[in-house]
Simulated assay, not measured.
Amino acid sequence: MHGVKRTRQSREAEEARKLKEQAKLKDYLLLTEDLLSRKKKKDWSKEAFDLATKLLHSNPEFYTIWNYRRNILINGIFPSSSVEEINSILSSDLSLTTSALKAHPKVYWIWNHRRWCLENVPPGPSSPTGEQTQGWRQKNWEREMYVVERMLDADARNFHAWNYRRYILSLFPTPPPPTQELKYTTHKIESNFSNFSAWHQRSKILPLIWEKEGKEREEEMRELEFDLVRNALYTDPNDQSAWLYHRWLIGPHPDPILLTREITSIQELLSEQPDSKWCMESLVHYTLLLISLTPETEREEMKSECRRLLAELAGVDPCRKNRYQEISERLGV
């Protein structure tokens, strides 16, 4: 930091630090060698399990050890454990992954082990009538929603956490209504329009609501979505997230009147942001859609506008110059 005087370590302190790091590395390598040897021998003992815990604390990205850990549980520990003990072990492993994710929130192997733990939680103990309850599983899913929301509070664009959230919602014994999840994505988007994962989540939730509430309600909600995404486009026309959502909202087979309206809106934005690549790309994309819905005799003016925009794009985005030229050539002279 500027203005803060740095204290230089003595030679003895530096040597002591290096020796400590070397000893730590040596211990890590010996532990790794031991565990890989045990894995090869199919050692499913509690001792091997505890050593795996120790190694994963040091290196939670070691996917081979996560795999070995699951084999120890399946082949060595679970067969001799009661359902209560299995539930307790899996709860401890969920706590282990929670700690690991705080420092490594985007490591696939940690998320993967967390899923495995949840999928192997046994049903709850038998009720007085002899029926097994879903108490443990329900509590676990509720806790997972809390954990993943804290992860997204820390990093709202962590796509691993968003994927995990979708996974939880798909398997939740008593899932929350889709409108609640829609409200959650609205909050995340309004906090940061550049949240691609939140926009994507929205595209998964809205069809569920529209299917349930009917065509008239869908049309009303689509208009509200256009207002939301238009606000995002005008706030930051160079951000890709909202443009991709806008394309999803338009869809592959749009109404020509809707398409014309959105083209006009984007043209207005382009007049304010004349170098906006995404404005120009979207205008080309939507104009090509409109051309496909327009009689042959009325297409030339639109084709000419596309060629003009593609020529400008070649200058604004030279890395994709060949792509733009190819699209222009397909439009003909």
Rank of each mutant, 00 (worst) to 15 (best):
N238A: 14
N238D: 10
N238T: 03
D239C: 11
D239F: 02
D239P: 01
D239G: 08
Q240C: 08
S241H: 07
S241W: 04
A242K: 02
A242R: 03
W243R: 08
W243A: 02
W243T: 04
W243C: 01
L244T: 12
L244F: 09
L244R: 04
L244Q: 11
Y245H: 11
R247V: 06
R247S: 13
R247K: 14
W248R: 09
W248A: 05
L249F: 03
L249Y: 03
I250L: 12
I250M: 06
G251R: 06
P252M: 05
P252K: 05
H253P: 00
H253M: 07
H253N: 14
P254K: 07
P254Y: 02
D255Y: 11
P256G: 08
P256W: 05
P256D: 14
I257L: 15
I257Q: 15
I257N: 09
L258T: 15
L258P: 05
L259E: 13
L259A: 10
T260I: 12
E262V: 06
E262I: 15
I263K: 05
I263Q: 03
I263N: 04
T264G: 07
T264V: 10
T264Q: 11
S265W: 07
S265N: 13
I266N: 02
I266P: 00
I266K: 00
Q267E: 13
L269N: 07
L269V: 05
L269R: 02
L270K: 07
L270S: 13
L270D: 03
L270E: 08
S271P: 03
S271V: 08
S271M: 11
E272M: 12
Q273W: 06
Q273L: 11
K277F: 02
K277I: 14
K277C: 02
W278M: 05
W278R: 00
M280A: 02
E281Q: 04
S282D: 05
S282H: 01
S282L: 01
S282V: 04
S282Y: 00
V284W: 01
V284E: 01
V284I: 06
H285Y: 14
H285C: 08
H285L: 06
H285R: 08
T287W: 02
T287A: 03
L289N: 01
L289I: 06
S292F: 08
S292Y: 07
S292I: 04
L293Y: 11
T294E: 13
T294G: 12
E296R: 14
T297D: 14
E298S: 15
R299E: 09
E300G: 02
E300M: 10
E300R: 11
E300T: 09
